[in-house]
Write a protein that binds this DNA or RNA. Structure first.
Length: 337
DNA sequence: AATACTCCCAACCGCCAGAGA
DNA sequence: ATCTCTGGCGGTTGGGAGTAT
């Protein structure tokens, strides 16, 4: 079939956006919502393709975008989620309020990846070089298989969660549209129109378009996705509460921004950072949350043998670690490691 | 001050999936 | 069933800013 590029029209502008163009785009979306991106440029008086407008909006102009330095917590969240999900930036972005997938991707490529490499950690596998050497052992293979399985499970869960978030926002949007037109939400993946923002000031600041669900909530969603497997609910509930109530392990000041240094400090027991956890303790609490029935329902789930389940039962550190990272507020960066 | 080099990130590109005709 | 359109995603890059020589 082939598809013509969206910007094949001659005369369409490319490259950096000017303040005037930004203003036009903002003004138009404030007035009308974005509607069809393809038709937007003409209506808004822009010599741009719709795709360019959409990207400019979602990555830069949207009022609910947090810009500037990533916090220690955000960095750790990115790394942990990357270990789980790989380069699925949009999925990762759903757990980082007000950050765009593009920004996260850039930050990973320019900062975090290099840092991991410097530490001798493979940014793709998140394995330390030493661990890689051990990878031929049976246990490591099994652990790797388990990790792979968990990642797939996690991916499916995140997708479902993102869908839920979108749908709930759509509902929220629809419910509030008439009553409070200025309080509507947009979503990066939403097909709903964005309406006039309040420019992110004060208490009425817009929520993140990428995730309005806290990680605590997410955990519940992940653990109890559909209410279909309630036969495990009490155990799940216990695990959830255990995880959510886990205390943090040590204080890290924001000024100690080079948290990676600490991972290399065995004396503080931090060498079991998430990367190690993923390698060695990848059993994770989620084991207790997934019955085989659930496993079968996860699209693309790999086959899991009995021995894999034993991994699931041993180590609570994995979820604790992730929870400690993601379940605290961005302003509280003292809870990491 | 001039030049070379590196870093960073906004923006582009190409592919894919889903919806609708 | 097939094709087209649209929006979303991840990979890549161009060029400005900053730094080193």
């Amino acid at each position: 079939m082939g598809r013509s590029p969206c910007c094949d029209k001659a005369g369409l502008k490319k490259g950096p956006w000017t303040p005037e163009e930004d203003q036009k785009l903002l003004a138009y979306i404030e007035e009308h919502g974005h509607g069809s991106w393809r038709s937007l440029p003409e209506k808004a008086g822009l010599q741009r393709c719709g795709k360019s407008c959409r990207l400019r909006w979602t990555n830069y102009l949207r009022p609910d975008i947090k810009r500037g330095k990533f916090t220690v917590q955000e960095e750790q969240t990115i790394i942990q989620l990357h270990a789980l999900l790989g380069n699925r930036w949009s999925a990762i972005a759903t757990h980082l309020a007000k950050r765009t997938d593009n920004e996260i991707k850039n930050y990973w490529n320019t900062h975090l990846k290099k840092r991991l490499v410097k530490m001798g950690i493979d940014p793709v596998t998140h394995k330390h070089k030493n661990e890689t050497l051990m990878s031929s052992t049976g246990q490591s293979k099994s652990a790797a298989a388990t990790l792979s399985h968990m990642a797939q499970w996690e991916s499916a869960r995140l997708e479902a969660e993102a869908r839920l978030a979108r749908e709930s926002k759509l509902l929220h949007y629809q419910n509030n549209k008439a009553a409070a037109p200025n309080n509507c939400l947009s979503h990066k993946a939403s097909s709903t129109n964005w309406t006039k923002p309040n420019q992110g000031k004060g208490d009425q600041q817009l929520e993140s378009p990428t995730s309005t669900v806290t990680f605590s909530e997410n955990l519940h969603l992940m653990i109890m996705p559909s209410g279909e497997n309630n036969n495990e609910s009490s155990e799940i509930q216990n695990m959830t509460e255990f995880a959510l109530s886990s205390s943090t392990s040590s204080d890290v000041k924001d000024s100690d921004h080079d948290w990676m240094r600490q991972i290399n400090c065995p004396a503080e027991g931090i060498e079991e950072g998430f990367t190690s956890l993923l390698l060695l303790g990848d059993s994770g609490d989620r084991s207790l949350s997934i019955g085989k029935k659930d496993e079968e329902t996860v699209a693309g789930a790999v086959e899991v043998n009995e021995s894999d389940y034993s991994y699931y039962e041993d180590n609570k550190n994995y979820w604790n670690s992730i929870l400690n990272l993601v379940d605290s507020t961005p302003s509280d960066s003292s809870t990491m490691f």
